[in-house]
C-alpha cells in the first residue's frame, strides 16, 4: 500500500519535469517552427525567438536554460493559434 502511494507521489512530482524530457531541444524547436510556420503575429515571432534562444543555450551546454527558453517558445507557439 505504501509503495503504491509512493509511486503515485513520484508520478505527481515528476510529471512536470517529464513533459518533453525525452524529446531533444532540437526536436522541440522543429515542432515549434512547424507550428508557427507562415504566421507573423507577435506570439509566433516570440516563439521563433525563444526557440532560437533555446538552441543557442544548448550549444553552450546550458541545458536548464535551453529548457526554460523552449518552454517559453512552446507557450508562445500555442498562444499563436498554430496547429500542432
Amino acid at each position: 500500500m505504501r509503495l503504491l502511494l509512493l509511486t503515485i507521489l513520484v508520478g505527481a512530482m515528476a510529471a512536470p519535469a517529464m513533459a518533453g524530457a525525452f524529446d531533444s531541444i532540437d526536436d522541440r524547436a522543429s515542432r515549434v517552427e512547424a507550428r508557427v510556420q507562415g504566421k507573423h503575429d507577435y506570439q509566433a515571432e516570440l516563439a521563433r525567438d525563444m526557440a532560437s534562444a533555446a538552441q543557442d543555450e544548448l550549444a553552450q551546454h546550458d541545458l536548464r536554460a535551453a529548457r526554460q527558453f523552449m518552454d517559453l517558445a512552446e507557450q508562445a507557439a500555442s498562444r499563436s493559434g498554430g496547429k500542432r
Binding site: L3, L6, V10, M13, A14, A17, R67, Q68, M70
Partner: peptide
C-alpha cells in the same frame, strides 16, 4: 523512491 522523485522534480526547467 523519494530521492528519485526529488531528482526528477529538480529537472523541471
Amino acid at each position: 523512491t523519494m530521492g528519485a522523485a526529488l531528482w526528477l522534480g529538480g529537472c523541471a526547467a
